[in-house]
Amino acid sequence: MTQIKTIAIKEFKDYFISPIAYIVISLFLIVTGWFFFSTFFIYDRADLRDFFSLLPITFSFIIPAITMRLFAEEKNVGSYETLLTLPVSFKDIALGKFAAATLFSMAMLLPTLSYPIFIAFIGEIDPGPVIGGYLGAICLAAAYCSIGIFASSLTRNQIIAFIIGCAFCFTLTILDRMLFFMPAKLLAVIQHIGASSHFNNISKGIIDSRDIIYFISVIFIFIFSTYLVMHEKN
């Protein structure tokens, strides 16, 4: 446990040593801020529904950019060898990196808390969907982080890791809008695999164990796959 913590803290700090963190956070805030506030006063509603409905799409591009370096860079520089010969288990390495990426996504969401505070001043805001929305956002970010880490463990090239990560996340995001093209028998299964419907449920303020279990299983599957890839590649 302490080793997971040590690795997580080190990786989290690493984000802020290089300019990547600041670039990614600004990009995220500009994109979400623009899309949210451009129509906010036209709709004239005191809620964050538009902000949260955009998150799955923005996350599916931003999160892989956060996670792409976690394994790929180490393999490229060679420090992967240093890391793997330290007395840490593969599981701890994967979990530590996952925790760091998830923490960083939460840090990225932190400035957006100013939106509900700002809205609370000018109108009456219902706290339920806001809390649910942030909880859903954290679940979604964690799930996408696990996917991104898996993508990063596959290659030593960060750009390839980014593209693979985006492909996975984007597929999960748009899967339930593609139902039209799917065979009728598989509809229920495919809808369940897509991330958006689960996220939407939570962000409405409905916290259903099925949705939580969905996110936990995605995280588990991809962290476990990362672990298997690490085993297979050495």
Partner: peptide, 25 residues
């Protein structure tokens, strides 16, 4: 173990790096 050409975390300070290693070890 000292790997060939000592691949380290290049963006860290020497002290931070050693502290990280010490904690893991």
């Amino acid at each position: 173990y000292l790997p060939e050409s000592a691949p380290l975390y290049y963006n860290m300070l020497v002290y931070d790096y050693l502290e990280y290693v010490a904690k893991i070890k």
